[in-house]
Amino acid sequence: MNAPFGPATGRVERWARTAMLIGAVVLFPSALRAVVVNPSVGNWLTAVLAVIVVVGSTVSALSAWRNRATVRSVPAKVSPAEVAVPDVLAAIASSSGRIDAIKRLRQMYPGLGLLDAKVLVEKQLPGPA
């Protein structure tokens, strides 16, 4: 989820995941030491949880670093004039309500703004808006 706020957010996310991995690796030996000193059920559960956290953090950090160069394209802006009326009617027909119709229309036209989709749907819906 690097794209919504630009490259700086992706950078922060990568380093946060890396810091979490480092923290998990630093705390991991103390969990294992507790099992060796006192092999109780609670200590074993803590050790198992520590292993899960280390593995999960490793996978998360590696995927964040691996995908750092992935460029996510932003769809081109679509003006309401470019949206065909039959598509608006199809979105309304296949939906359960006004909000669902707006969502479906925006899925059909990814660059269409929320307000523009709302206006288009409400023009085609019978009854008061």
Rank of each mutant, 00 (worst) to 15 (best):
N2I: 09
A3Y: 06
P4Q: 06
P4F: 02
G6L: 02
G6H: 01
A8T: 11
A8H: 11
T9G: 09
T9L: 15
R11H: 12
E13T: 12
R14I: 03
A16D: 14
R17S: 09
A19C: 13
M20W: 15
L21N: 01
L27E: 04
L27R: 12
F28A: 06
P29L: 15
A31E: 09
L32K: 09
V35Q: 02
V37H: 13
S40Y: 00
S40F: 01
V41Y: 11
N43P: 06
N43L: 05
W44H: 13
L45D: 03
T46A: 12
A47G: 11
V48P: 00
V48N: 01
L49H: 12
L49V: 14
A50I: 12
A50M: 08
A50H: 08
V51P: 05
V51L: 12
V55A: 15
G56H: 11
T58Y: 14
T58E: 03
S60A: 11
A61E: 02
A61M: 10
W65A: 10
R66W: 13
R66D: 06
N67P: 05
N67F: 05
R68W: 06
V71S: 11
V74N: 01
V74H: 01
P75K: 03
A76E: 04
K77Q: 08
V78L: 07
V78Q: 10
S79K: 06
S79I: 08
S79Q: 06
P80T: 02
A81P: 03
V83H: 06
A84W: 09
P86S: 10
V88P: 05
V88W: 03
A90S: 12
A93C: 01
A93N: 06
S95F: 07
G97A: 00
D100L: 04
D100R: 09
A101L: 09
I102C: 07
R104N: 10
R104H: 13
L105M: 02
L105R: 00
M108W: 13
Y109H: 06
P110W: 14
G111H: 04
L112T: 00
D116P: 00
D116G: 01
A117N: 02
L120I: 12
E122Q: 11
K123E: 15
Q124C: 14
P128V: 09
A129V: 11
